[in-house]
Design a binder for these strands. Structure first.
Lengths: 124, 124
DNA sequence: GATAGTGTTATAGTGAACTAATACAGTGCA
DNA sequence: TGCACTGTATTAGTTCACTATAACACTATC
C-alpha cells in the first residue's frame, strides 16, 4: 500500500478499511484481517496496525475479542458515513467554497462541478 | 502563529506569506521581513524560516540579495494563483466530486454550493 | 495438554522535522 | 573603519511517528 505524507500512516490505513466497510467488502459482523496479517499485507509494523485498530475501535467501527480477532460493528457503515458527512460539511465544503471565491474561477472552469450537480439533480 | 499538524510548519508559513502577497499586503518588489524578524514574529526557529524562504525562492515567488533581504518577485501574484489553480483542479476538485458521489448527498444538503455557483453566475 | 492462531505490551532504534545556539560573511551607512 | 543590519551555514539536541523484535496472554481445536 502506498502512503501520502499528508496524513499519518495509521490514519490512511483506517480510511482504507472504512472504504472496504462502506463498499461491502467487509460486511457487518465479519472478521477483518488480524493485526499480523494486515501488517504484512500493507507492509507496515504491527504496532502501527494496532494503533489503527484501536482508533477504529474507539470510533465503534470495529470491536474485538482477545485471542480471536477484530470484527466489523453492526453500526459501522452508518458510523463511517456520519463521520465523513461531518468532515465534509465542517471542513471540506467551506474550504472548497473559500477556494472557488479566492481563485475567482469562471463557470467554464467549473464545468465538471456543474455536470456532477446536474447529474445529481436528475437522479433525485 | 498557530499551526495545524496536517502540513509542515515551513509550508504553512509559506502559505501565509503567499496570502499576504495575493492580498497586496506585500506588493511586488517590496521587502518581506528578514529571517530573524519573521522567526520572532511567528515564533519558530530561524532555520525553519530559511527553509520557507528557500522554497518560495525556488518557486520564483521571492528573490534575495545576500546581506540585504528577500523581495517579492514581479511575477509572484500570478505565480501563486497559477500554483493554487493547478492544485485546485488536480487535487481539490476531483477529491470534492468523489466525496459528493460517495456520500450520496442530496441537493438540499448542497444548498450552500448552489448559492455560491448562482452568485458566481450573476457576476459574470 | 500441545499447538497455532489471535490480541497485547514493552523496549530499543531510526529518520525527519523542528529547535537552539553560534559563528561567519555580505551590504549599507555614519 | 566600525557598526548594525542582512543572509548563510554548522553542530547538537528534542520530539514524534514509525519500525524491529520480542515476549506474554487469551481462545479454539485437536
Amino acid at each position: 500500500m502506498e502512503f501520502k505524507d499528508t496524513k499519518g500512516i495509521f490514519q490512511q490505513i483506517a480510511d482504507n478499511i472504512c472504504d472496504k466497510i462502506i463498499s461491502g467488502e467487509y460486511p457487518a459482523g465479519s472478521k477483518i484481517p488480524s493485526v499480523r496479517e494486515q501488517a504484512a499485507a500493507v507492509g507496515v509494523n504491527q504496532n502501527t496496525i494496532m494503533r489503527t485498530y484501536m482508533e477504529l475501535q474507539r470510533e465503534n467501527i470495529i470491536n474485538n475479542q482477545r485471542g480471536i480477532g477484530f470484527f466489523v460493528s453492526d453500526s459501522a457503515q452508518q458510523q463511517i458515513i456520519n463521520m465523513r458527512k461531518k468532515e465534509f460539511f465542517d471542513v471540506q465544503l467551506p474550504e472548497f467554497i473559500k477556494q472557488v471565491k479566492l481563485l475567482n474561477l469562471t463557470n467554464e472552469e467549473l464545468a465538471p462541478l456543474f455536470d456532477l450537480l446536474n447529474e445529481n439533480h436528475e437522479n433525485k
